[in-house]
Amino acid sequence: MNWVFLWLRALGFSATVPGIPLIALACISLFVILPSCALIAYLDRKLSADLQARVGPCRTGYRGMLQPVADCVKLLQKNSMHSQTLGELLWMLLHTMALYASLAAIPLGSLAMMVDTQMSVFIPFWSALVLALGTMLLGLGQYTTPGWLGGIRTAAQSLAGTFPSLIGILCVGMHAGSFRWSALAASQGFLHWTMFAHPFLLLAFVVFVGGGLVLLAIAPLDGGLAMSDIHGGVAVHVTGRQLALFQFGRFYGFFIWSVMTVVLFMGAWRIPESLRSWFLALDAEVCISVVELTWLLLKTYVLMLFILWIARANPRARVDQITDFSWGVLGPLALVALVGTAFWTMV
């Protein structure tokens, strides 16, 4: 939590303001997660329009840059069309829980970490699972055919995606010797990334990202929310504010999975050692946290845009193809990566 103290000191406050953890959580969600959500939503729409020879958003602000804000304001004005069922209420609770429980454990730089335990990696992983559970319950609670099918598909997908991605994490843990964020970052350098350490870790990287896409039902592999055959699945009867929350939750899952991937495989937040010691010599720790955060987010955005590129250029996979792919391809490859990493670490 010391980064909040750093900022408070840099801004001229005393470090004894009450409610610091809350301030920290609010800062993370307001200044990191929300802007990232808006940025990626905008880039997704604009770049996919470019890829498909369309225009994309062009009315709101310069080149439609305010489109995410406009979307959000529009959704917040709308009331839900239906009264809430018990299942939907349960989903809301789970959703909010998943959203805020793992905020404290997001790794955003060496100084900007609030919780770092032996099991750090599994906290966001757990929140991704809760998100999948919430989506499933929302679908099953709707008593409509698309919602119900979407719920079943979400359950099947998250089950299929968990297994390979969990093994992907184990490979990295075996390589780095710990599941602590700090230890995982310490095992990498500025350009010395875990995914390039040896071929099995590259395989583990692919498996981890693919498993995450299946688990969270993200763009190319989102059978549980398919528009064409089940009219949007779980999302079909979610409207207005609930839809805003639902979309935000899905984005949050995507974002946190990408941050995890960057920290596990792509050099975490490590900046060149010389730069870091230069900042330390200047006693500018705030600068360190800003530069580290920027570098980490930059890599995260590139990864997300890469995934969205694949998603927009390829047709959506059918739901049975997705689960087949996860169990039949990612699963065995994950085991190969695990065995390979084990041998490589021993030798």
């Binding site: 770049l47 470019d50 890829l51 498909q52 020879a53 590129w309 250029a313």
Partner: peptide, 8 residues
């Protein structure tokens, strides 16, 4: 993916 690059 690469087929879409010229459009981008």
């Amino acid at each position: 993916c690469f087929a879409t690059l010229p459009y981008l």
